[in-house]
């Protein structure tokens, strides 16, 4: 048969070379330099990094918030995605447009909105104090809660879109069939919908978790100086204190964490299938 190799490579070559040059090579060299010591190679930079309790705290906080956002977004998105399907095709385009819209809006603008809502003089505190629910305003901004809320709003659309498209690909009438066999709503969900949308859940979970670990603007603006996440720590180490070793280690840790969670989610969904 016709040999496609030369033709394929001619078309793949520019993109491949470009990415190797401006992405794989610099990032690779940078990440590998985390193992470079003054004399030889080793894991010393990692030991140094993780010997600091502050750093460990930052790491766990990042993972904790990312997992929480992933979990909550899944729990919230399932009913919402089901509603999108139930509302029928004529509204689907509009609803999906409304979900995509926030994705198209600058994270800076999105975080800014939360500054106004969550601040000490912000909408929530003013309302709660004004209506007498609270005696005095409570700190929300610059806490983990603020970061959680900001990230949830940032990432929820990704989970929602993944689940919606998984539901769209569900064989027709399986839900009705399950109901006709006597399953109640909860049983329909756990026995039919959940197993059949596992791939969508995996994709959504991967996107959300990765997004949370790597997001910079939201933790920087809503977490403030006290609620440091890996991304903001990386910025401090690289831009403020210029701690090269720590910078490379954090980068590697971020990457490995996201890859590990991606792999875990993928193997779970495959194991279940």
């Amino acid at each position: 048969m016709t040999n496609n190799r030369p033709r394929a490579w001619l078309l793949l070559f520019p993109a491949t070379v470009f990415l190797l040059a401006v992405f794989v090579y610099p990032v690779g060299v940078f990440l590998l330099s985390s193992f470079r010591l003054e004399n030889g190679v080793g894991l010393d930079n990692y030991f140094t990094f993780f010997s600091s309790e502050v750093n460990i705290e930052v790491y766990w906080r990042t993972v904790r918030i990312a997992l929480l956002v992933t979990l909550v977004s899944a729990v919230v998105s399932y009913p919402a995605a089901l509603a999108i399907m139930q509302l029928g095709a004529q509204y689907r385009g509009l609803l999906i447009g409304l979900i995509i819209l926030p994705l198209m809006i600058s994270p800076v603008a999105r975080s800014f909105a939360w500054l106004v809502v969550l601040g000490r003089e912000g909408l929530i505190n003013k309302t709660l104090v004004g209506t007498g629910v609270l005696k005095e305003s409570i700190p929300i901004l610059y806490t983990e809660n603020a970061v959680f809320i900001g990230l949830l709003q940032l990432m929820l659309p990704l989970m929602l879109l993944s689940l919606t498209s998984a539901l769209e690909n569900l064989p027709r009438d399986v839900i009705a069939a399950a109901r006709s066999l006597g399953a109640n709503s909860l049983q329909v969900f756990t026995r039919v919908i959940l197993p059949l949308t596992r791939d969508g859940l995996t994709i959504g979970g991967t996107l959300v978790f990765t997004g949370c670990v790597t997001a910079y603007v939201t933790p920087a603006l809503l977490g403030g100086p006290r609620v440091t996440m890996l991304a903001t720590l990386l910025y401090q180490k690289a831009g403020v204190t210029v701690d090269e070793a720590a910078t490379t280690v954090i980068s590697m840790v971020m990457l490995l964490t996201t890859l590990a969670v991606n792999a875990a989610l993928k193997s779970r969904s495959r194991g279940a299938a």
């Binding site: 610099p26 990032v27 060299v29 790597t214 990386l234 980068s251 971020m254 996201t258």
Partner: peptide, 13 residues
């Protein structure tokens, strides 16, 4: 792959 690498890492590198 650029989708899964943290943007900050790309920037510093």
């Amino acid at each position: 792959s650029p989708l899964i690498i943290p943007g900050l890492v790309i920037g510093v590198a």
